[in-house]
C-alpha cells in the first residue's frame, strides 16, 4: 500500500535535514510501529505523509497505492484514504465537532465522486461510532477540540478516523498525555478499526501503547532513518535497553 524509498527531507526554511534516507514498506492489513527518541524525525514523517507545508523532499519517493503521494494536496490525500491522527489536535472555535465531521466526510465523498450521506444517515453513523469511544452527544456538539481534555482530544481524533474510514492511518504519539484508562479506550478504538484492507503506522515514544495496540512490525528510527526492524519483541528490547544503543548503530 505504501512504499517509502530513500526519503530525504529538510526543513523548507533552514538547512536542517530531518529525514535522511528513510525506507519503509507497509502492506494492507499490517500495523507498523515506529519508535525513536525525540528529534529522530517521527513527527516529520507523519507530516510529510499528510502533506504539511514547511518541509522539502530533496531525494527519494513515496508511493501510495501506486500513485506519487508527494504530488498530491493534503485534501487529495485525505480523499484517497490517508489519515493523520495528530499528536496535538487543533482547536476550531465555533465549529461543532459533529459539523466538522460532516463537512469532512462529505468533502471526501464528493472528491471521490460518491454520493453524500443524508443527514439522518450521517447522524446514525456518528452516534454508533461515537458510542464505542465513550463519546456522548454533548461532546459532539462542542466546538472541535476547544476545551477538550487530553483524553477527549485523542478520542475525538480516533472518532474522526472511525467516521472517515481511511485506508492508511498514521497515529502520531496518540498515547501522549493519556492516563491508563483513556489509553485503553483509545487503543480499543484503534483495534476495532484494524482490518485486512487497512494499514496503520503507529508512531510512539514509549512501548506502553504497544501493549494495547500490538504491532506486526516494529522499526527504530534514529537520526532520520530506520536503523533496526523486527517483530513486536523489538519494542520490549528497546524498553529495556533504551535508544542509546541503536543510535550508535546508526552512526
Amino acid at each position: 500500500m505504501l512504499e517509502i524509498k530513500n526519503l530525504h527531507v529538510k526543513l523548507a526554511d533552514e538547512d536542517r535535514v530531518i529525514l535522511n534516507g528513510l525506507t519503509l514498506s507497509v502492506n494492507a492489513g499490517e500495523v507498523h510501529a515506529i519508535m525513536g527518541p525525540n528529534g529522530s524525525g517521527k513527527s516529520t514523517l507523519s507530516y510529510v505523509l499528510s502533506g504539511r507545508e514547511g518541509y522539502e523532499v530533496t531525494e527519494g519517493s513515496v508511493t501510495y497505492k501506486g500513485e506519487d503521494l508527494l504530488a498530491m494536496t493534503p485534501s487529495d490525500r485525505a480523499a484517497k484514504g490517508v489519515f493523520l491522527a495528530f499528536q496535538y489536535p487543533i482547536e476550531i472555535p465555533g465549529v461543532a465537532t459533529m459539523q466538522f465531521l460532516k463537512v469532512a466526510l462529505n468533502s471526501q465523498k464528493k472528491a471521490r465522486g460518491e454520493k453524500e450521506l443524508s443527514t439522518p444517515d450521517f447522524m446514525r453513523l456518528v452516534k454508533e461510532r461515537a458510542a464505542k469511544l465513550n463519546i456522548g452527544q454533548d461532546m459532539l456538539k462542542r466546538p472541535v477540540n476547544v476545551g477538550f481534555s487530553g483524553g477527549e482530544k485523542k478520542r475525538a481524533e480516533i472518532l474522526q478516523m472511525a467516521v472517515l474510514e481511511p485506508a492508511l492511518c498514521v497515529l502520531d504519539e496518540t498515547d501522549s498525555g493519556l492516563d491508563i484508562d483513556a489509553l485503553r479506550v483509545v487503543a480499543d478504538g484503534v483495534n476495532g478499526l484494524r482490518s485486512p484492507d487497512r494499514a496503520m503506522i503507529v508512531i510512539t515514544h514509549y512501548q506502553r501503547l504497544l501493549d494495547y495496540i500490538v504491532p506486526d512490525h516494529v522499526h527504530v528510527l534514529s537520526k532520520g532513518r530506520i536503523v533496526k526492524s523486527g517483530g513486536k519483541s523489538l519494542a520490549l528490547e528497546l524498553e529495556a535497553k533504551g535508544y542509546a544503543e541503536f543510535e550508535s548503530e546508526a552512526a
Binding site: R52, T73, I92, F100, A104
Partner: peptide
Amino acid sequence: QMFYCMSRGLSQEEAVALI
C-alpha cells in the same frame, strides 16, 4: 488550523469558510 482541516479532506476555500 488550515492544515488540520485540509488533512481531513477540506479544500483551502472550504477550510476558510468553515473557520
